[in-house]
Write a protein that binds this DNA or RNA. Structure first.
Lengths: 135, 135
DNA sequence: GCAAATCGGAATGAATTGGTCCGATTAGCT
DNA sequence: AGCTAATCGGACCAATTCATTCCGATTTGC
C-alpha cells in the first residue's frame, strides 16, 4: 500500500511541469533543478511518462517535454499508472494474470474488486491542476 | 499501489475465520486447509495478525486463534496495516520518517496527504463482516 | 557538415519480500 | 506427576523487485 519512489517523483515533476506556461519546452535538467529530483532519476521518470502518453517528447537540441493534455485532464491515477503499471491491489484483479492458487475457490475476490474500485476512484478524483496549486 | 501477497493472504484467512462461530479455537492448519493458503505462510500471517491485536492466540495442544473483536469491528485497513505496516503512500506522510531530500521545498505534500486520507478512508469503509459474506 | 544538447534503453547494486524451518510452550492422557 | 502430542513464535535463506546510474542514439541549430 505504498507507491514506489519513482511514482512519487513523477508526481512532483508533473506538478512542476504544470506550473509552466502551456506548450513551453521543458528539459529534464530544468525540471530536475526546480524540484530537487536527481537528474538521472528525472530522466527515467519523464521517459516513462512520455511512453504512457502523458508527456510529449522532442529530441535533439532545443527539445524537451511538454504536457500532452491540459493539467485538468490528467489525474493522480494516470500518473501512478504511467510509472507503476495498472492500479490493482491483487493479482487476481488484473484481467490477464491468473497465477493465484486460490482462483476459483476464493470467496473474497468480489469484495476486493469493489475495494479496488473505491481506491482507484479516490485517486482519479485528484487532478494535476489541483496538485500544482500552491499549498 | 499493490498490496503484498502476505496482506492478500491475511484477508483471505481472516474472512475464513470470520465464518466460524465466535470464540471457536481455530488452528493455523485448519484455516490453511480451508483457504488453500500454504501452511507455513498461514502461520506467518496469523502470527502478525496476532501481534497486531486482531487475533488472540493460545499456545499448546488444543490452542489456536480466535478473532479479538467482532467481525464488524475489523476493517480492511486494519488487516492491511497489521501485515504491511502503516498505510502511507509516501515516506513524508508517515510522521516519524523524514528521509526525503525535497522536504521543506516540496509543494505537493499537502495534496498527497489528502489523497492518502481518501484511500485510507475507502479501505476503512470495508468491514470484515462484509468480506466474509458469500459472493 | 559539424557540434552541442537531449531523449532512450541497458546494466548494476541494494533492499524488501516471500517462503521455509526449527525451537519454545502448553494442554491432555497415561 | 511425567510424558506425549499439538500448536504458536521467532529466526533464517533464497528470490524478486526496486532504485539508481551510466552510456549510446537522435535531432536541431550554426
Amino acid at each position: 500500500m505504498r507507491l514506489t519512489s519513482l511514482a512519487d517523483y513523477a508526481v512532483v515533476v508533473m506538478a512542476a511541469a504544470a506550473r509552466h506556461p502551456t506548450g513551453a519546452s521543458l528539459s529534464a535538467g530544468l525540471l530536475a533543478e526546480e524540484t530537487g529530483v536527481p537528474l538521472p532519476t528525472a530522466q527515467k521518470v519523464m521517459g516513462r511518462l512520455a511512453a504512457a502518453g502523458l508527456l510529449l517528447s522532442a529530441r535533439g537540441a532545443g527539445g524537451g517535454f511538454r504536457l500532452a493534455r491540459a493539467a485538468g485532464g490528467i489525474s493522480l491515477a494516470d500518473i501512478i499508472e504511467a510509472v507503476e503499471g495498472p492500479i490493482a491491489m491483487t493479482n487476481c484483479i488484473e484481467g490477464s494474470i491468473h497465477d493465484c492458487a486460490l482462483e476459483g475457490s476464493c470467496r473474497v475476490k468480489p469484495h476486493l474488486n469493489a475495494a479496488n474500485d473505491a481506491v482507484r476512484g479516490a485517486l482519479q478524483g485528484v487532478s494535476l491542476a489541483t496538485l500544482a496549486e500552491a499549498k
